[in-house]
Amino acid sequence: AIERGSKVKILRKESYWYGDVGTVASIDKSGIIYPVIVRFNKVNYNGFSGSAGGLNTNNFAEHELEVV
């Protein structure tokens, strides 16, 4: 089962992080479509409006993740 702290591989082909491994930061139990927040070591794009980097978290559905 996917739980907080799990290392997961991203299976969503259109994702910037496809094939990468991230760490589960949290799981939303409220029934939303993409409840699993995954944190990565790298950012997906340069930040804007003065922020240092881009996003390094993204929401995924459990079926888009594979525990490694």
Rank of each mutant, 00 (worst) to 15 (best):
A25R: 05
E66A: 07
S49T: 12
G19I: 07
S26W: 14
W17G: 00
I32F: 08
G47F: 05
L65K: 01
E66K: 08
W17Y: 05
V43I: 12
Y16P: 08
G54P: 09
N59F: 08
I37H: 07
V68E: 04
N46I: 08
R39V: 14
V24C: 05
A52S: 12
L11W: 05
R12T: 04
V68A: 04
N41M: 12
S49A: 11
D28I: 08
K29P: 09
S6L: 09
G53S: 10
T23Q: 05
N56C: 15
I2F: 07
E14T: 12
G5I: 03
V8R: 03
I32V: 13
G22D: 01
V24H: 01
K42Q: 07
G5H: 04
N59W: 10
N44W: 15
E64R: 02
F60M: 01
G31D: 14
S30M: 04
V68P: 02
K9M: 08
E62K: 08
A61G: 07
N56Y: 13
V8P: 01
R12A: 04
G31V: 10
N46D: 15
N59C: 15
S26Y: 12
H63C: 14
Y45R: 13
F60D: 01
K9E: 01
V38G: 00
S51D: 14
Y45E: 15
F60S: 00
N59H: 09
S51G: 12
P35V: 15
Y45H: 15
L65H: 01
G54H: 07
N58Y: 12
S51R: 02
T57N: 06
F60N: 01
Y18H: 04
V68Q: 07
L55P: 07
R12K: 05
N44E: 12
N46Q: 12
W17K: 00
Y16S: 05
Y16Q: 06
N58I: 09
R4P: 14
G19M: 10
K29F: 11
G47E: 14
I10G: 01
G53Y: 06
N58Q: 15
V24F: 03
G31Q: 13
K7Q: 12
K13T: 09
V43L: 08
Y16A: 05
G22Y: 06
V21S: 02
E64H: 02
T57L: 07
D20A: 12
L65M: 03
V67W: 06
Y34W: 08
L55Y: 12
G50V: 06
T57H: 11
E66F: 08
F40M: 02
F40S: 00
E66I: 08
Y34N: 11
G5R: 02
V43N: 10
I33Q: 13
N41D: 10
P35Y: 14
V21K: 01
G31S: 13
A25I: 15
K7D: 03
V24L: 02
N41Q: 13
E66Y: 07
N59L: 05
D20G: 06
F40Q: 00
G31T: 09
G31W: 09
G22F: 06
V38Y: 00
K9W: 03
D20K: 13
G5W: 05
G50T: 09
N44C: 15
K13S: 06
E3M: 15
G54S: 09
A52C: 15
K29I: 08
S30L: 05
S49H: 08
A1H: 11
F48I: 13
E64I: 03
N56A: 08
F48P: 14
N59Q: 07
A61L: 05
A1M: 12
I32E: 09
E62P: 10
F60Q: 00
N59A: 14
S6Y: 13
L55S: 14
K29C: 13
V21H: 04
N59R: 11
S26K: 10
G53V: 10
V21T: 08
P35R: 14
V24P: 00
Y45D: 15
L65I: 05
K42G: 09
S51M: 11
N58P: 03
T23D: 03
S6Q: 10
E66T: 06
I33R: 13
F60P: 01
F40C: 03
V38S: 00
T23F: 09
E64N: 02
V21E: 04
K13W: 10
S6D: 09
K42E: 07
V21Y: 08
T23M: 07
K29S: 11
N58M: 15
V38R: 00
Y34I: 03
K42V: 07
V68H: 03
Y18N: 02
A25F: 10
K42S: 08
S30K: 07
F40R: 00
K29Y: 12
D20N: 10
V21I: 12
F40H: 01
A25N: 05
F60E: 00
L11S: 01
N41Y: 09
G54R: 05
P35G: 13
R39N: 06
W17D: 00
V24R: 00
R39E: 08
G22M: 05
N59T: 09
